[in-house]
């Protein structure tokens, strides 16, 4: 399956592992896939947010949730990043995004899996899902994003 990934999709996939380590997560989730795809300017334009904005939104969601259970982080700032094992497993959600990416590319009779295909798969995620939560926090309109992605 991996040989059919366009180079930019493979880069996004590697970036997703890096995002996981940076966040302190032990698995690559749909949120990490989303943030790494937003490093692609064309995807960021279609979604209406870049990777940095998404990282800030994820951080704000974390702080908000902690506050709701009575934990105030005060002036805590994330130190460095966690070290990754050789093999970084995918969450169940991330696996199904990869399957959908493949199915969407196949339905378009595309020879390679592009970041656009993966973004379309991420837009399908129903809540509760880390990427769906992040897209909602960013105020992304899924239908408009799909329209704009058609031009990518």
């Amino acid at each position: 399956m991996f040989e059919t990934f366009a180079k930019s999709t493979r880069v996004a996939f590697d970036d997703a592992k890096y995002e996981a380590a940076r966040r302190g997560d032990r698995r690559v989730g749909t949120d990490h896939l989303l943030i790494s795809l937003l490093n692609e300017p064309a995807i960021a334009t279609a979604v209406g947010a870049d990777a940095e904005a998404a990282r800030r939104a994820a951080e704000a969601l974390d702080r908000g949730a902690l506050k709701a259970v009575g934990v105030d982080l005060g002036d805590y700032r994330a130190p460095g990043r966690a070290s990754l094992g050789r093999h970084v497993p995918l969450t169940a959600g991330a696996k199904s995004v990869l399957q959908r990416t493949l199915a969407i590319a196949a339905s378009e009779k595309s020879r390679s899996l592009t970041p656009r295909h993966m973004m379309l798969a991420l837009l399908e995620r129903p809540a509760p899902d880390p990427a769906a939560d992040l897209l909602a926090a960013l105020g992304t309109d899924p239908d408009r994003t799909r329209e704009r992605l058609a031009a990518v």
Binding site: G24, A65, L66, A68, G70, Y76, P79, R81, A127, D133
Partner: peptide, 30 residues
């Protein structure tokens, strides 16, 4: 705190637990 923990909806409560785990991982690694 007990009241707050009980009243947080599952999405918020689980996100908070995940956030604490992420903080623990980053602080531990450093």
């Amino acid at each position: 705190l007990g009241v707050q923990l009980r009243t947080a909806d599952p999405a918020t409560g689980l996100r908070a637990a995940g956030a604490l785990r992420r903080i623990a991982e980053l602080v531990e690694a450093t």
